[in-house]
Design a protein around this nucleic acid. Structure first.
Lengths: 107, 107
DNA sequence: CGTGTAAGGAATTCTGACACG
DNA sequence: CGTGTAAGGAATTCTGACACG
């Protein structure tokens, strides 16, 4: 049911504000991007822009870093979660297609 | 049911991004603030920060301005709507209190 | 009234690099 | 590896003002 707005995903927050929101330094935020943990968009002039989801992701990263988890390991976990989500998504797509062709089934 | 996050209301967007999002110039956005149509927060260093709600409000303002409505009139409409919302809110608060004391009533 | 613009300054952001450990 | 910092430049934002209509 998510539609166009989707405030949580829109990339509109500058790095300075993200820094305030997360407590991380700009250096750290840029480094986590370098390590492919976070993927900001860029404005026309090249400034990074983040979403609220990115901010939450960064807070999780900060927590794991405090526990001593390295960026590489965090990345592996993220990739694993992503594969799991995609699998779930494929199952849902398939179910939707079946329902569309053969009608809604109970269970 | 709205809780702490409330992405729509958090003031995190800088004026440059708001300008991109609304198509308004920074001059216009600042002027509408001067006319009390919009109320950004300020960062520690004094930079304006807007919410997604502010962005939507600005788009509405832009539409009305295109129709030739003056900022003063837009403000009057806003104040009228606000009073209406507050009235509604008071009614809901009262109902909640009644329910809390005398139990949930049907209708 | 609503908006453009030039002005000057302060703060922001960017990149690439050196440092430490 | 993860983060701090100084460096230099480019872009951002701010305010107060003059302009036009």
């Amino acid at each position: 049911m998510a539609s166009n707005p989707s405030y949580k995903e829109r990339k509109v927050i500058t790095i300075g504000v993200v820094s305030e929101l997360t407590g991380l330094t700009e250096r750290q935020i840029r480094y986590y991007e370098e390590r492919k943990l976070i993927f900001p968009e860029r404005s026309a002039k090249g400034n990074r822009k983040y979403s609220f989801m990115d901010v939450e992701q960064l807070i999780e990263i900060a927590n794991k870093r405090e526990e001593g988890v390295q960026t590489y390991e965090i990345r592996q976990e993220m990739l694993k979660d992503k594969r799991k989500d995609e699998k779930k998504h494929r199952r849902e797509l398939l179910r939707g297609e079946i329902n569309a062709r053969f009608g809604i089934q109970k269970e």
